Simulated assay, not measured.
Amino acid sequence: MEESLIYEILSVVAEIPEGKVATYGQIARLIGRDKNARLIGKVLGMAEKYGEYPCHRVVNHAGRLVPGWPDQGVLLQQEGVELKDSRHVDLKQYQWDGC
């Protein structure tokens, strides 16, 4: 995978403001790769190799948190994002508009 693509994805993630979330598909659309939501997840899985990015602010299309990452919910709650239940964010309330 080209580093320029990785940094393009991570630069969008870096723009997500505190207290908001974005979806994998939303990030894919913002970089002009509408059908590549899984690619976004793959890049976020290795993001720590490229610096510190707020990857905890990215959820799936239903607002579901990453399975097996219990700290994600904690980090979001510390930023003022309330969870609907133990595994979901209310996208209507907290989704970043991504302008």
Results as ranks from 00 to 15, higher is better:
residue 81 V to M: 04
residue 97 D to F: 14
residue 65 L to R: 07
residue 32 G to N: 01
residue 39 L to F: 09
residue 62 A to M: 13
residue 22 A to H: 02
residue 34 D to Q: 06
residue 57 R to Q: 14
residue 87 R to A: 14
residue 38 R to P: 01
residue 47 A to H: 01
residue 42 K to C: 04
residue 72 Q to S: 12
residue 86 S to E: 14
residue 24 Y to A: 02
residue 78 Q to Y: 14
residue 28 A to C: 00
residue 56 H to S: 05
residue 61 H to S: 13
residue 67 P to H: 12
residue 1 M to Y: 10
residue 38 R to S: 02
residue 59 V to T: 04
residue 34 D to K: 05
residue 90 D to K: 12
residue 68 G to C: 09
residue 7 Y to T: 02
residue 95 Q to N: 13
residue 51 G to H: 08
residue 2 E to M: 09
residue 95 Q to M: 14
residue 36 N to W: 08
residue 43 V to P: 07
residue 50 Y to N: 12
residue 13 V to R: 00
residue 59 V to N: 11
residue 92 K to P: 11
residue 13 V to C: 05
residue 76 L to V: 06
residue 60 N to F: 01
residue 49 K to R: 15
residue 93 Q to D: 11
residue 14 A to K: 03
residue 64 R to Y: 13
residue 41 G to E: 03
residue 82 E to H: 03
residue 88 H to E: 08
residue 41 G to Q: 01
residue 45 G to Y: 01
residue 30 L to G: 08
residue 28 A to I: 03
residue 76 L to D: 05
residue 52 E to W: 09
residue 89 V to P: 05
residue 49 K to D: 14
residue 45 G to E: 02
residue 76 L to E: 04
residue 49 K to N: 15
residue 99 C to L: 15
residue 85 D to E: 07
residue 61 H to I: 11
residue 31 I to M: 13
residue 23 T to Y: 04
residue 34 D to I: 03
residue 12 V to M: 03
residue 13 V to Q: 07
residue 7 Y to W: 14
residue 74 V to Q: 12
residue 9 I to R: 08
residue 65 L to P: 04
residue 51 G to Y: 02
residue 69 W to I: 15
residue 85 D to Y: 00
residue 95 Q to Y: 06
residue 32 G to T: 01
residue 88 H to W: 12
residue 32 G to L: 06
residue 75 L to Q: 10
residue 26 Q to K: 09
residue 24 Y to S: 05
residue 48 E to K: 14
residue 81 V to E: 10
residue 12 V to P: 03
residue 96 W to G: 15
residue 67 P to G: 11
residue 30 L to T: 05
residue 42 K to Q: 12
residue 17 P to A: 12
residue 19 G to A: 00
residue 85 D to A: 11
residue 2 E to F: 07
residue 51 G to A: 10
residue 28 A to L: 06
residue 94 Y to H: 13
residue 81 V to T: 08
residue 42 K to A: 07
residue 87 R to D: 14
residue 89 V to R: 08
residue 71 D to N: 14
residue 5 L to V: 05
residue 59 V to W: 10
residue 90 D to P: 12
residue 67 P to F: 12
residue 68 G to K: 07
residue 82 E to G: 07
residue 16 I to C: 06
